[in-house]
Design a protein around this nucleic acid. Structure first.
Length: 596
RNA sequence: GGACCCGUAGCAUAAUUGGAUAGUGCACCUGACUACGGAUCAGGAGGUUGGGGGUUCGAAUCCCUCCGGGUUCACCA
């Protein structure tokens, strides 16, 4: 049983007996005692003063005395300025360590009676550009939050909606036809998504030149933008695509398949995956049907030009277009269709969209529209909105070539990891392929941790010049500690020292106790991360845990400890810490090397 | 202009959701290995939490008001 629950229960009876008062949940505040003060658990007594009608010190005194007398684990207490600090017996913490040590699923085994099914949408790329740093944040957050939700007993379906249709795809297709010279991933050796991305850039280059030329000839900017030969050609392709014209469909399929192969490689390096992939080319018509149904039911209205709109002024929002005057669908229409298909395919209780915060308005509207259309799950869809990744120069802009490519970034990181490891000479004993594997783990550990440790809501800054650190509050720091513990455990095994759960120690040091307390927090940290949709909570916990372990390691002998009982206790402690680190970091999608 | 978000030391970030003296890393100084891994540990310096007001036992956190930054308000996706 968790210490908070025990104290809470005791506190309730204490208040009832002492002051004849039954507190509400919100009035009971139990927290960990500040590091620099005596005690383990702290109760805030301010909320009780109205009922005790005594000073904070006196009230704390009375409650403290009561708890020491009535709860066997509470040894002593002190009161500082209205904060009641309780000291908990060591045996309690040792028991909680044993629970963590013996339970393989410690922290990830909470099983709510009714297990919800949650679908998490993330990644959601366009097929005309390779993935970049922004996508990396999206993918890491999406993957991690899925793992965290699973750890709290939810059934999770990871999904990806690929935006594979529209004018932007036609631009790349046109550029390939016109300037492609028959280049393919096979004959150039290029990754498919990068190749297609080049054509998209190529299109933009020609288009811009054409527009400039037309303006030169006296056309207005708008006229020029609408009459440039390239854009006319791309639009023509879109019309052909919608008419399912044979040759165009073939080209579309071929180029998309190049991109998918490229994406698959990137997803694999990042270590993310999906249970089900949707394609907008398959869902947008469903959305259109839904909008027309809504129109018939009088939820939406039609303008004279034939376009269909939703009036959201009652919700203090604007008018929103749902179908263009030519009857084609917009972004919103597609999302309605995709949502409908998802709920038909799976019995989802909740939908989570991992999409950047520039879409806040879109999802606010989507929730209202789904609700209007009568989908009961619409109103409480969750938009996991995260901030953007900025560069020192500002926002990433593909036109200005300031985009940080996902594949390049990972490759650079692996190179840096290799250099650092070689300089330290740590991996000389490993075979080449094992060493490469380790460099990759470290590189990705650094990258993932760097991104996931910051609060998802916040915009974050990434400086490619400075690259990512391997010291301090970083992924490799945590990996290093893990590898070091593994090394200790290996050495112990070599010396035929057995580790068993029969712990007999009378006294433990302050550092050891800190570590025990920290380990016991893991399950509630996982729960908190899930409640707040925040992998950062896990990342920060892992860091604190590891930092505390390193302090303990520095101050105490483990294998070399002469007292066998103490040695055994420290081995159990080390092994438990290692497994908690591994579990926590796995929730972030970060692997732990056995040596580094 | 309307709506939403953000502002913490030179930089990057945390703060148990309103709690105690605002933690941590990088960078900068100083120290620690002939017993388990120095990608480590210990210490120092660095803050009016953008400014001002308010709410209360108590504010980085809530309210008001300025200042600065971002996003969004497309018959683009």
């Amino acid at each position: 049983m968790k210490i908070e629950n025990i104290i809470q229960k005791g506190l309730k009876t204490a208040l009832a007996e002492l002051y004849d008062f039954t507190p509400a949940e919100s009035q009971i505040q139990i927290q960990n005692t500040r590091k620099d003060l005596e005690g383990d658990v702290t109760v805030v007594v301010f909320p009780f003063l109205r009922f005790s009608k005594k000073s904070p010190e006196q009230t704390g005194d009375e409650i403290g005395t009561y708890l020491v007398k009535n709860i066997e684990f509470v040894n002593s207490f002190n009161v500082i300025k209205g904060f009641l600090n309780l000291e908990i017996e060591s045996s309690f913490w040792i028991d909680s360590l044993l629970e963590a040590y013996s339970n393989k699923n410690f922290g990830t085994d909470s099983q709510p009676e009714v297990s919800e099914t949650v679908m998490v949408e993330y990644s959601s790329p366009n097929t005309n550009k390779p993935l970049h740093l922004g996508h990396i944040r999206n993918n890491l957050l999406g993957y991690s939050i899925s793992e965290i939700l699973k750890a709290t007993g939810k059934k999770v379906i990871k999904t990806n909606i690929v935006n594979d249709r529209g004018i932007h795809i036609c631009k790349s297709m046109y550029a390939w036809q016109k300037w492609g010279n028959g280049r393919t991933p096979e004959n150039t050796g290029m990754k498919g998504d990068h190749l297609v991305g080049e054509f998209y850039v190529e299109f933009d280059k020609h288009y811009k030149a054409e527009v400039a030329e037309l303006i030169e000839k006296g056309l207005s900017k708008e006229e020029a933008e609408n009459q440039a030969p390239s854009i006319l050609a791309a639009r023509e392709l879109l019309v052909k695509w919608e008419a399912k014209e044979e040759e165009t469909m073939q080209l579309w399929k071929t180029m998309n398949s190049w991109v998918y192969e490229g994406f698959d490689v990137t997803y694999k390096t990042l270590g993310v995956d999906f249970d089900k992939i949707y394609y907008e080319s398959e869902t947008y018509l469903v959305g259109k049907e839904e909008v027309l149904r809504g129109l018939k039911e009088g939820l939406f209205y039609k303008k004279e030009d034939g376009s269909v709109w939703a009036d959201l002024t009652a919700e203090k929002l604007d008018q929103k277009i749902l179908l263009r005057s030519d009857g084609t669908s917009v972004y919103m229409t597609q999302d309605i269709g995709t949502a409908k298909m998802r709920y038909e395919d799976y019995s989802i209780d909740k939908m989570v969209y991992v999409v950047g915060n520039e879409q806040n308005y879109h999802f606010q509207v989507l929730a209202i529209l789904l609700d209007k259309l009568g989908f009961k799950w619409g109103k409480d869809l969750y938009h996991f909105s995260y901030g953007m990744v900025e560069l020192p120069s500002g926002k990433m802009k593909s036109r200005e070539g300031t985009v940080v490519d996902a594949d390049d970034l990972v490759e650079n990181m692996v190179n840096v990891a290799r250099d650092v490891a070689n300089e330290l000479g740590k991996l000389d004993s490993l075979s080449e392929s094992d060493a490469e594997d380790t460099y990759r783990m470290i590189a990705l550990g650094a990258l993932k941790y760097f991104i996931l440790k910051v609060d998802p809501k916040k915009n974050m800054l990434f400086n490619p010049e400075e690259s990512i650190d391997f010291n301090g509050n970083t992924g490799p720091f945590i990996q290093y500690t893990y590898a070091r513990i593994q090394s200790v455990l290996r050495k112990a095994a070599d010396k035929n020292i057995t580790v068993n759960s029969d712990i007999n120690v009378d006294e433990i040091s302050g550092k050891e106790k800190d570590l025990l307390k920290r380990v016991s927090l893991f399950p509630s940290v996982v729960a908190e991360a899930a409640d707040n949709y925040s992998p950062a909570v896990i990342a920060n916990y892992c860091y604190e845990l590891v930092k505390e372990y390193n302090q303990f390691y520095h101050d105490h002998y483990i294998i070399s400890e002469s007292n066998e009982e103490t040695r055994n206790f420290r081995l159990v402690l080390s092994s438990t810490v290692a497994s908690v680190i591994k579990k926590g970091m796995n929730l972030l999608g970060i692997e732990m090397p056995e040596r580094m």
